[in-house]
């Protein structure tokens, strides 16, 4: 009897569902990712800005600074504004932090390591991305503050301008691989990565991705100098922490999606095929590619000022959408004249 229960527990603990829930891409991954990437961003930006960044907490280069900050936020009191709509005020950041994690379910970390294998994995990721902007709008409205309201309204404009080119530019990848299934898309890149065949599409995707994850130069909804802190102005304590958490999870999801679509996803050589399981090697490769993407996004933050909302709309509607369409047409011609390029 005991043996059976023991086997059951052990079987559950080593099952794929458990590992996916608690390790990659589950709780351990997103927790560690945010802790490390916030520290890494502060450290790298500090280098760009000729200063030190976190230095003391955790002995080695302030590595535990983020953990200390999170603990501090946890002990702070919730102070909702008097006229706020309380339900929206409390729930919006909770969902803002949890919804982007759903996008991770569609990302393949190896041919078999995928939480929700689906033939329309790309569309699932897009559906999740389309859901996230609603929450800041609710938060901005629920706070009943002028600055948060303007920040919320800016999100509407920004996401409409960013999301359409994001969808259109990935169309080229879908045409080349002939599938919405992210595993098929990755496998189609076994000869060469799609960033080589789709440089224009990758550029458009990348720029609209920055707009969607609201990072410099497109951090317009939280513009500190204009709107205090945009739609997050009224949040303090761990509610603020959750909004930051959601932002970094969006960053992770966006980088993973870019790596999957254009950088060959989990593909990469396994140096010791007999020694390292192929799943591990695949995970290492996609995480490495994600790390490269995150680094690029952080360096961009150090190198550019912020754009204005009307300039972003101009960029989105007058440049990115036409370029994405041109990219689609070019891909069609490419497939028609050189049918061997695609993986399909």
């Amino acid at each position: 009897m005991m043996q059976q229960i023991w086997d059951l527990i052990l079987g559950f603990l080593t099952s794929k569902y458990f590992l996916q829930l608690f390790f990659i891409p589950g709780i351990a991954f997103i927790g560690l990712f945010t802790l490390i990437v916030v520290w890494f961003e502060r450290k790298l930006l500090a280098r760009v800005m000729l200063r030190y960044g976190p230095l003391h907490v955790g002995r080695v280069a302030g590595i535990l600074q983020t953990l200390a900050d999170t603990l501090k936020l946890l002990f702070k009191e919730f102070i909702p504004p008097r006229k706020a709509y309380k339900l929206g005020f409390y729930l919006a950041p909770v969902f803002y932090a949890s919804v982007p994690t759903l996008a991770l379910t569609a990302i393949p970390f190896s041919p078999t390591w995928i939480v929700y294998p689906s033939d329309v994995g790309l569309l699932i990721a897009y559906a999740v991305i389309a859901c996230t902007p609603i929450l800041p709008i609710i938060a901005g409205w629920a706070c009943n503050n002028r600055y948060t309201m303007i920040g919320g309204l800016r999100i509407i404009f920004q996401d409409v301008a960013g999301e359409i080119p994001l969808l259109l530019s990935a169309l080229g990848v879908v045409m080349l691989s002939g599938s919405f299934n992210l595993v098929n898309i990755v496998n189609a890149q076994s000869r060469y990565w799609f960033i080589l065949l789709q440089p224009l599409g990758a550029l458009v995707f990348f720029i609209s991705l920055i707009a969607m994850v609201e990072r410099v130069p497109f951090d317009i909804p939280t513009a500190e100098q204009e709107l205090v802190f945009g739609w997050r102005t009224e949040y303090g304590g761990i509610l603020f922490g959750l909004t930051m958490f959601g932002e970094y999870i969006s960053l992770a999801a966006g980088s993973l999606l870019f790596s999957t679509l254009y950088l060959g996803g989990y593909l990469g050589p396994n140096p010791f095929p007999g020694f390292i399981p192929s799943d591990f090697a695949s995970m290492a490769w996609i995480l490495l590619k994600m790390a490269v993407m995150v680094t690029v996004l952080i360096v961009i933050r150090g190198a550019y000022p912020r754009l204005r909302i009307d300039q972003l709309l101009n960029l989105g509607w007058k440049w990115l959408i036409p370029l994405a369409m041109i990219n689609t047409v070019l891909t069609m011609l490419m497939i028609y004249f050189f049918p061997w390029v695609g993986g399909a």
């Binding site: 760009v48 800005m49 000729l50 200063r51 130069p217 513009a223 100098q225 150090g302 550019y304 912020r306």
Partner: peptide, 10 residues
């Protein structure tokens, strides 16, 4: 004010 913190530090 233009969101360019690098130059602020420099």
């Amino acid at each position: 004010v233009t969101g360019f913190y690098t130059i602020l530090m420099w």
